[in-house]
């Protein structure tokens, strides 16, 4: 049996983070908190969601794995306010979400029917960039207007994001002094905007984003969201370049 209370923003963020890639996911409840991870059906990206038990207003959960229809939770979470307290209860095969005077119940999915869970890959990524997630969101949304792919690049002069359209071009640059943390390592990879634009939806300005970048290697984007109450990590495979 699982019975937890959490603020609305956390639930909204978890749902949004997962729905970017999958429609069904397994949620693990452990003493340390809640955890979920999944690979998208195109086998291009992975999402890892962690909410430590301290981030919940109340947390009492037996160790358990449940299968959740993320689309439904996402839809219902849109009606919940960020500051509102939400109680999530799981009994047998039903999940109940209570907010205000509303009680929403939904059938769970048999976890064994959901696609196998991935391991967290072991990636060696030289460059580490820490920056404001809101800034990152702005660039990606701008890049989406002109191209379907962007290049992430870093060297000792700073971190670059570049997108090129047929007749236009976007270049984003932040030097070490503008970034929160930067190790000046060189790296360069190209990524699909289609994925990135879904990822940044969870980010707001003030949230911290940590990027680990390699050359023609996947990128790790770690978002600390909801005032640090939840951590959402995306791993995105690079575009294949000639």
């Amino acid at each position: 049996m699982i019975d937890v209370i959490v603020t609305g923003d956390v639930l909204k963020t978890i749902a949004k983070a997962l729905v970017a890639l999958v429609s069904e996911a397994r949620f693990h409840f452990k003493d340390e908190g809640m955890h979920s991870r999944a690979v998208d059906p195109a086998n291009v990206a992975m999402v890892i969601v962690d909410v430590p038990s301290e981030s919940f207003e109340a947390y009492s959960a037996e160790e358990d794995v449940i299968g959740v229809d993320v689309n439904r939770i996402y839809d219902i979470s849109k009606t919940i306010k960020s500051k509102e307290l939400v109680e999530i209860k799981v009994e047998e095969s039903t999940m109940t979400i209570k907010f205000g005077s509303v009680q929403y119940s939904v059938q769970l999915i048999d976890p064994s029917a959901i696609r196998k869970e991935p391991k967290v890959p072991n990636l060696e990524l030289p460059a580490k960039i820490v920056m404001d997630a809101g800034e990152f969101k702005k660039v990606i949304q701008a890049a989406d207007k002109i191209s379907d792919h962007v290049v992430f690049r870093s060297d000792d002069t700073g971190f670059y994001i570049e997108a090129e359209g047929d007749v236009d071009k976007i270049e984003f640059h932040m030097s070490e002094s503008e970034l929160i943390e930067f190790n000046k390592a060189s790296a360069r990879s190209m990524f699909s905007v289609e994925y990135l634009k879904e990822f940044v939806k969870i980010a707001g300005s003030g949230d911290i984003l940590t990027i680990y970048l390699g050359t023609n290697y996947p990128v790790r984007l770690i978002f600390d969201v909801c005032d640090g109450k939840a951590k959402v990590e995306y791993i995105l495979a690079p575009r294949i370049e000639e």
Partner: peptide
């Protein structure tokens, strides 16, 4: 997206073309 991107396998490994 599958056809133009590298792969993260079901096992969670990175596959490079």
């Amino acid at each position: 997206e599958s056809a133009f991107n590298e792969t993260i396998s079901d096992e969670g490994e990175f596959y490079s073309t």
